[in-house]
Design a binder for these strands. Sequence first.
DNA 1: AAAGCGCACAACCGCACGATA
DNA 2: TTATCGTGCGGTTGTGCGCTT
Length: 386
Amino acid sequence: MGRAPCCDKASVKKGPWSPEEDAKLKAYIEEHGTGGNWIALPQKIGLKRCGKSCRLRWLNYLRPNIKHGDFTEEEEHIICSLYISIGSRWSIIAAQLPGRTDNDIKNYWNTKLKKKLLGKRAPSRRARATTHQDPYQLSTAAAAGGNMCSTSSVSNNNAMATQALSASALERIQLHMRLQGLYGAFGGDSAAATPQQWPKLETLLTSKLQLPATEPVDAVATTVTVQQHNQHLVDHHSLAAGREAVEAEQLGSTGDGAYTMPCSFERPNKLVGFCSPSSAGATEAEVAASGLMVNGGYGGGSGGFGTHHDEIYDFLYKYGSVGAGAHGGHIPSLPELQCPDSAAAIVGADEKFSTWTADASCDYGQLQGNPIDGSLHDYALGGYDQ
DNA sequence: AAAGCGCACAACCGCACGATA
DNA sequence: TTATCGTGCGGTTGTGCGCTT
């Protein structure tokens, strides 16, 4: 038996909001607040709308201090960096961008940034509607992109393997590689002299290289946590603790190339499987079929993360392209996001989208000096084919 | 001028989670 | 312990606009 609907769909109005509806909702909330019950709110103010719809309208459009319109380069940097690291966790990304909503960022990513960065064109909605192809294959093929995957030689097995890696993961791999200028990393020094070339996807996916028995460290996943009572706030004390833990663990890594996850800081409260965003949305079968899981998952550490971990980082570690440790070291870990004043940030925090208010802008100076900084925009936003 | 198409954005939907009875 | 409810999230769809043919 399914869940009862949150409202009577037959009697609620759908579609665009009228100015009158906006005014009613805005006036009521500004005077009384939401009352902690969105479901009951529309009845109170005589709106024929679903409570969820009211909530969405308020959070994404009506509430004060919301920015609409063009994203700055800095915002693009942040979106890009975080997407690579944590995937489509739009609410978390939005928490780093004052005044931006998750919906806004999601739309911006899907309609502009992704094309900008990956230089690809999504199949049109009409094309998708008229094709009989599996949409998953379509999106995966799109994510695999131009010369990354030579479909002419892909066997059925490889096609299945292609399916196993999510489109999101492929996008992030592509993005990560592009941002790091990693075109030669798969072929040694000699490859650096050859024209830029993506690795053949089928080769990568059918490889049975064994992952190390321990986990990679996702720079963001292991350093960004979520406060108990406000999942949109970044806990900078935990960040610091996590950073120290990472450093300590890396210093203590064993000579055989294995190191363990830092366990000394709090597991994200809301984000079960945070270090495995792609697998969180995948079925167990998909994850297992990917062949990218570490044997037995993550078993070490009392403060550990989920059993599954991020397939993109598996992939990147597998091919020795991430991290400064024994696994390769081609790609530096992503920078941490810093806020200059965590106390002010918490005081000024906006419950929906902002770790800090416009008055307390975030200092992304932490990005300065990181190899990504400066080159990121050049790599990602410059010189792509329109 | 009209149809087709691509794009951007707002809104909806279903699911997962936490709180609570 | 279980069922129910409200909320939040991410993916998807609907719609309107502008450009092209």
